[in-house]
Amino acid sequence: MTKSNDDFKVETWNSKPTKGAAGKTGLWRTFRPIIDDDVCTRCEICALYCPEPCITLNPDDPSHEKGRMVIEYEYCKGCGICANECPKHCIEMVKETEFLVEEEEEDK
């Protein structure tokens, strides 16, 4: 019988769940969700609905007794589900091009 007398191995695609397995998906984004921290009640509905998930509550932030909602823009694809679900309508989807000018100025 042919036995494994060499290094050949059958290879399949098996990936362990890991952060950013498909790369920096934030690069796909056209609209950036911006949370208005003054209106936000920290209800965490956005975090619940985020399909990635890249919205989390930072409980140590001093801006509010519950902390502050933080969006991880490296992976946020800008799908807008958070803005759609927010009961306070305090997440605004802003065109990425607007930040481009800002960021260019920062670079200077």
């Binding site: 695609w13 098996n14 990936s15 362990k16 397995a21 498909a22």
Partner: peptide, 9 residues
């Protein structure tokens, strides 16, 4: 021992 099989490649 969970794995994702045949993910985007």
């Amino acid at each position: 021992n969970p794995v994702t099989h045949s993910n985007l490649s």
